[in-house]
């Protein structure tokens, strides 16, 4: 097969770059996880800046190290983390769309602010959906640029759907998140909340939690005071995005997009989708706090967020 020449070629792979659409839905009952961007906010903005519709596949670049060469003229945008991206060696501005000429080299360095950058191209990356989605889940071998759940490797080519879009769109200041400070994560209390001791509940919502280095697209472990729950295990049941489960060691784990579909630990509740996005940009060692919110507050915030991305 002759390699396609109509997109971006991977000159250097870096640790982890995955193609993600909004996620794989409707098949969770088969044990198939959700996938999709762990920072929905950054992913949505990258797509929006180049005029793509909600759900268009974009690249999630974790930590950096990726180098891409444009094989034709493109309009692209980088949003989410600042991974010290450069274009032909010059710093590339995030949160805005820009034109790239065929032959130019786009490189991601290392985290400056946040952990995951999102690269969208006008027209969108083209890939064959698997089980209805392009979302790349390495563990399941599903989706991504090759349909087999592989991370990008040197020599891969990313196909781009042709499209006429002009550069120059910019995200408003309030959309550009500074990921460096302590994060406040909105949590919707769940059904087992009353099973935790009063002192544990106080700690859960008042302690500074540290993001552990055991953190990936499945979940993020938080370390801090030990939480005690009267229940130690439950019959396995479906787990929603952002569920904060507390295993017997008392250290909570926030479950993200690639979590297993069912599980049996009691839960404090669920982080809101935007809190998941924020947590996904935290580096190990960063501090976070949990803040209980009402369903109404969370729904209003989510609907406001989505309203910008028709």
């Amino acid at each position: 097969m002759t390699p396609a020449k109509d997109g971006l070629r991977v000159a250097r792979a870096g640790p982890l770059a995955l193609l993600q659409d909004a996620g794989r839905f409707g098949v969770r009952r088969l044990g198939v996880t959700q996938g999709g961007p762990v920072d929905l906010h950054g992913w949505a903005w990258a797509n929006h800046l180049v005029g793509n519709a909600w759900g268009t596949p974009a690249l999630e670049v974790t930590f950096g190290g990726l180098e891409l060469v444009a094989e034709r003229d493109l309009v692209l945008a980088v949003a989410g983390a600042n991974l010290f991206a450069t274009l032909e060696g010059e710093p590339l501005a995030g949160w805005r769309s820009l034109s790239v000429k065929a032959g130019q080299r786009l490189a991601f360095g290392a985290p400056v602010n946040g952990l995951r950058a999102y690269l969208a191209v006008a027209g969108g990356f083209a890939a064959e959906p698997v089980l209805g989605s392009v979302a790349c889940v390495v563990r399941e071998g599903l989706g991504g640029h090759d349909g087999k759940g592989h991370r990008l490797a040197e020599g891969d080519t990313l196909q781009v759907t042709p499209c006429r879009t002009s550069a120059g769109s910019e995200a408003p200041r309030e959309a550009r998140v500074d990921y460096r400070g302590p994060a406040e994560l909105a949590l919707l209390p769940g059904a087992q909340i009353s099973e935790f001791s009063g002192a544990s509940l106080f700690r859960a919502f008042n302690a500074d939690w540290r993001v552990d280095d055991r953190a990936d697209r499945m979940g993020v472990r938080l370390t801090g005071p030990r939480l005690q729950c009267r229940m130690t295990s439950m019959i396995s049941e479906g787990i929603g995005l952002g569920a904060v489960q507390v295993p017997p060691d008392g250290q909570p784990i926030a479950l993200l997009n690639d979590r297993q579909t069912i599980g049996g630990y009691p839960r404090l509740g669920a982080l809101t989708p935007l809190a998941c996005s924020r947590l996904a940009q935290c580096l190990p060692g960063q501090e976070v706090r949990l803040k209980a919110v009402s369903t109404e507050q969370a729904l209003a915030a989510y609907r406001r967020f989505r309203a910008g991305f028709a």
């Binding site: 969770r28 019959i235 049941e237 479906g238 787990i239 579909t261």
Partner: peptide, 22 residues
């Protein structure tokens, strides 16, 4: 409807929050 996860004793019902409130 976004997803359904039946499991032993429970059913997790996931719906589209843009079109339905809890």
């Amino acid at each position: 409807l976004v997803d359904l996860v039946p499991s032993y004793t429970t059913l997790l019902v996931v719906f589209d929050p843009l079109r339905l409130s809890a």
